[in-house]
Amino acid sequence: MISLSINNKLVEVDTDPSTPLLWVLREHLGLVGTRFGCGAGLCGACTVHIDGEAFFACQTLVGDVADGRVVTIEGLSKQGDHPVQRAWIAEQVPQCGYCQSGQIMRAAALLARNPQPNRQDILDEMSANLCRCGTYARIVRAIERAAEEA
């Protein structure tokens, strides 16, 4: 049994410590908002916060986060009203939506660290996350809006 803090709750999971956190979140705990895109640290669909920083859940072994606080898209805000989420709605960002949990988690981590990022900061940070539907221009606008309104 491995104990984890996920979205401010202590949970126990019965798996090998070398299991990627992504499978634990999605398949053991049913926190399916964190997505599987590549399993290789290349797309960012699985982005979560560990102690406030963005990590690829597919590249994080569950045994390594026993001491950390994991936050997923489901735990980012109580009412879905984090400034980034509000900006995402205002700018009508998502299309298929599959990449968007990861995009939002990365954007939220960026703004927590750097509340007033310039455009280059945004591009540098968000380059870790792919969006095949091509919502990038709106992602940039939404992050700028969230920075302004936060």
């Binding site: 399916v32 960002v93 939506g97 968007q100």
Partner: peptide, 27 residues
């Protein structure tokens, strides 16, 4: 009007077939 699916998609609440989990389900 805003797209009706967008709020859910910002909360990770949209469900894709890959998210389905059923009692007794095998992988």
């Amino acid at each position: 009007p805003g797209r009706l699916d967008i709020p859910g998609k910002t909360r990770g609440a949209a469900l894709y077939s890959i998210d389905v989990r059923l009692p007794g389900m095998l992988y």
